[in-house]
Nucleic acid binder design. Structure first.
Lengths: 349, 349
DNA sequence: GGCGCTAAACTAAACGTTTTGTAAAGGAGG
DNA sequence: CCTCCTTTACAAAACGTTTAGTTTAGCGCC
């Protein structure tokens, strides 16, 4: 068994109070300090964090609840959260609820029973009544990436809608009339936001939207691949496409490689978030980059602030701008609408 | 503040003992059971896990310590570990030590102070004296993926050496004399094992090894890309390559796409672990697949067993076989050694 | 030396559980 | 009715800390 304060106290010939004081940085008499230091060192004493938690009701632990761990995005977020928490001496208790709302509730309960000091979660579902329960228990909750509906709750989001909207608008301004959109599951907040952004972008650019250019998928690499292959089979192919999830971008890239589609001459591409490959591919893929690490960091700092008792500006929804990462995958539209001509009358296709 | 046992007891008109008994599944008198259930429900009582931990000295938490969270492989392992632990009601306290041995020690200490019941770690370094400390504290430690040197310690590994060896041998048997190897950092156990496997495979196949075909890298996508580009600049290009890390495979694939290398006619490729794309690419990349999920599961179950007091067969090193995933990226060697001829004397290149 | 003041140390009571003796209640058997 | 046994409940002591309430030690000053 590990040494306890009592053991140290006995050895140093003082009371446990003195040990506690030493550990927490109080001032001791020179003689006692020496003795205590000696005893601590000799016994290899480390304070028991569980007992500290029980007594102070602070566990210095934050629960992190995500719909799945099997995603690059969540991974980066968690990595960043963990890093920031660790800086402040906090640990991360991580749960994966498999995207299931019932399981999410259960895990939330699990975390609360462990008296985590706060919770950072990526909501699995738009509805999240159980989150209210945590809030009622006075445990600060910060939503990451998605905003749960109908609940006042701190959040760290990126500007999904505006980012996509700007991207689409820029495509339209380059002359693209047939801009396709490949999006993730409409169950999620972000996917919907991006979809709205797409529609708004078209509208602002003065372009029409056509249902056949909109692909709603589940957001996997395979989905992106399939969607792009399908789009290319349309009688009127799109001249530009925006893939609104990291995995979808990858799928689109694979499809484009397979079909030997010339980018950007035949097709302009804007991807999302794919740090790992987009800058190595030729042509480099232009992509909307979410500030994932930043979001994680913001969420962590926010939850720590709430834990520290600073409740100012609740609910605080922080929206961080995405970056448009340059690349050569976007170009002026070279394909003329059917029936129109260029200069000498040569169709470009 | 949340309701405590005392509150419930008062409301139900019984002693805390009775509540405890109810919570832990003892038998109560019908009348008391009713009253207790009512009180628990009315007050929304949940047992405080911290207090339970303090009293029982079991926290039902396992520490997971990885050199970095920014890796697909570690992520999958963690996902699997978390899943298995959750099944048994255990939580995962996750730490990232940034590959730094000193930080690893610190985090290990952090975990021990929280009285985790066990630890699963992917060792950052070959040397890991601090691990012995945990073992001395009677906290079961299971190494994942890599084996720390000089310490008796349970472990869940995959058969890195044999898998690569078999892969290389199969290439040699297909006639390849110039098989290149792109490996990860030699600081890590697995990278070294795979390297040895490569050398052994060549030897067993009866092929020579040449330094210029061996690329030791840090294992990033970019490294794989560069290494492959470099290899293709050699006067005598390799006819086959094995990329011994997931990210390296991706890099090789990108290089091959960029250079328009015909696979497998000009170059046979064997990758490692790249679940996400290798089956979508054409030709599909042949790859050594580590049973990551299985390793995570094994490690979790093993640590739970140790926690449960079963110390049989210590140290237990479980080695799970990798699978060779089929693909069309491997073919018979079509390039003749300089000076040799085929049939009518036509060089195939 | 006695008084007052401050700094340092001590004792004991928490925190919310589990668990170890004990005691009360409730039958069964004589 | 009494005894004996079983079942169920109780009160109190842990677990390893922090902290409020007290006591002691040390020192300067009249």
């Amino acid at each position: 068994m590990a040494a306890t304060m009592k053991d140290v106290a006995r050895r140093a010939g003082v009371s446990v109070y003195t040990i506690s004081k030493y550990v927490n940085g109080g001032t001791l008499k020179e003689k006692n300090r020496k003795a205590v230091e000696e005893a601590i060192h000799a016994l290899g004493y480390r304070p028991n964090a569980i007992a500290q938690s029980l007594r102070t009701s602070y566990s210095r632990t934050v629960g992190v609840l995500v719909p799945t761990l099997d995603s690059r995005y969540n991974l980066s977020a968690i990595a960043s959260i963990e890093r920031t928490l660790a800086q402040y001496g906090y640990g991360a208790l991580i749960c994966d609820c498999g995207g299931d709302a019932a399981l999410e509730e259960e895990k939330l309960d699990f975390l609360l029973r462990r008296t985590v000091d706060g919770i950072i979660l990526i909501p699995a579902d738009r509805q999240a009544p159980h989150i209210a329960k945590a809030v009622r228990r006075n445990v600060p909750v910060v939503a990451l990436d998605r905003l749960p509906e109908g609940i006042a709750c701190d959040a760290a989001l990126s500007n999904n809608r505006e980012a996509v909207q700007a991207a689409v608008k820029s495509l339209v301004e380059l002359g693209h009339k047939r801009v396709a959109f490949i999006g993730g599951s409409q169950q999620t907040f972000t996917a919907r936001e991006r979809m709205y952004g797409y529609l708004e972008g078209l509208r602002q650019g003065g372009a029409d939207n056509f249902d056949e250019y909109i692909k709603q998928t589940d957001g996997t690499v395979e989905d992106g691949f399939r969607a792009m292959m399908d789009l290319w089979l349309l009688p009127e192919r799109p001249t530009a496409v925006i893939a609104a999830e990291s995995e979808l971008s990858m799928g689109v890239f694979l499809a484009v490689t397979k079909r030997r589609i010339f980018v950007p001459d035949e097709l302009s591409i804007i991807g999302y978030d794919d740090q790992s490959i987009s800058h190595l591919v030729r042509p480099a893929i232009c992509a909307v980059e979410q500030p994932v690490e930043k979001l994680g960091d913001i969420a962590a700092k926010l939850v720590l602030r709430r834990i520290g008792g600073d409740h100012s500006g609740f609910p605080r929804v922080s929206i961080s701008p995405s970056q448009m990462k340059g690349g050569e995958s976007v170009g002026r539209c070279l394909v003329m609408p059917a029936g129109s001509r260029i200069g000498g009358g040569r169709y470009l296709r």
